[in-house]
Design a protein around this nucleic acid. Structure first.
Lengths: 215, 215
DNA sequence: CAATCGCAGTACCGTACGGTACGGTACGCG
DNA sequence: CGCGTACCGTACCGTACGGTACTGCGATTG
């Protein structure tokens, strides 16, 4: 990951799109969901009822539009801050459950699937600068980790969890939550996922995690 | 997964390629590894030192060539049979360790990454029949599961593992082994993976699995 | 009202690629 | 030798798409 500097630079560039521009990005997203592979400029223009010239003016080129779309979507997910003070077993459990539920809900959602497909498809051909894979990684996996870590560390401090590397603990938790779900949905396996099933899966993962890392 | 019938039909069609045809498929693979996205017929023809006409004659069309390549690669991985008789703790541990090591080695290998990228990229647009996602799923995730299950069930029978659904146990084991590795490498995260690191990861996963499912 | 701006719509261009056709060559066989 | 077969190399065609330029229209501003 030598793109951290690049990503920082991008991060500082504000995503202050106008309403109309957000409409265009939403149109791109909807098209992406329908078929992430065959996305064309004329297709986006038609869907958004705008001209190709406008697309090029606003986003530079095709890649710019796609990157903007990915980052726009990323900017839509809110991260609610979390206070690590006064950690109790009930609270830790609730935080873990919420995290697992959110993660499964997002990963199996059509938007996440479409964007991951897009990013994976061209993760290798990042000849010139920005490649979408790192952006998705940053806003996906690499943003969820640091978000949960404080809770894990607070849990260790409070004697609820065994002392261990919190990064490693998080990765194991991630594995217990996601298992083979992500790769299966990405490859087109149409797994049914009701709210109930996700909740059950989250429960299981949290229980297993406490088995492994509980004090 | 309504493609099982389709896959069966494909499975019965023999992959008895000639030596020359295998050379072409290997050339396709090598090109796929370099850049899974920009693969063209003329590119393959040049790399394989054959004519486009021959490609079309042998593989029908571009999709046929890609599918043949995926299935050709799948046919290369040997599955060594496994006898579930006389299961001991040492043997079960060894089987699990071997499985975990193989899985991590394959998933982080460039061939697997290239093929998964290709399959994921167009997993959604399977307008006409065969989509590569299901093929990769069948030869990847869905072939490893049934391969390990007998060992898990023998372990349960021998009282080494808690009684539980072997599919569920396998999926948890899979999660503990793979964690976030697969999605990260697919998205272009260049994780270093030496043999030693893989071995360490496999050890950890097996230990954790016994913690969760050991009797 | 006139000048300007933003943008939709569309025509246009260059190129890349999938797919086809054809010429040329090597080889096997009667 | 003549014929067929297999195949390489390449020219060719149609199309799709990225990107650019131009036109027209409605809104804004002075």
């Amino acid at each position: 990951m030598n793109n951290l500097a690049t990503l920082q630079r991008i991060e500082t560039a504000p995503d202050d799109w106008t309403e109309r521009q957000r409409q265009v990005l939403d149109a791109t997203l909807s098209l992406l969901i329908e078929n992430a592979a065959n996305i064309t400029m004329i297709g986006v223009a038609r869907r958004a009822s705008c001209s190709k010239e406008t697309l090029y003016k606003w986003f530079g080129d095709r890649d710019g539009l796609l990157v903007a779309t990915v980052r726009y979507q990323a900017s839509k997910v809110k991260v609610e801050p979390f206070d690590a003070e006064g950690m109790s077993e009930a609270k830790l459990t609730s935080v873990l459950l919420g995290f697992a539920t959110d993660l499964l809900t997002i990963l199996t959602g059509e938007i996440s699937i479409a964007l991951n497909r897009l990013a994976i498809a061209q993760a290798h051909q990042g000849a010139d600068g920005i490649n979408m894979g790192s952006i998705v990684l940053q806003n996906g996996r690499f943003s969820t980790g640091p978000r949960l870590k404080p809770a894990l560390e607070a849990g260790m401090k409070a004697g609820l969890l065994r002392q261990s590397d919190s990064e490693d603990a998080f990765r194991s938790f991630y594995g217990l939550v996601v298992r083979d779900v992500h790769i299966r949905v990405l490859l087109g396996d149409t797994m049914m996922f009701t709210e109930n099933e996700i909740s059950t899966e989250a429960d299981r993962a949290v229980q297993q995690f406490f088995h492994l890392y509980g004090a």
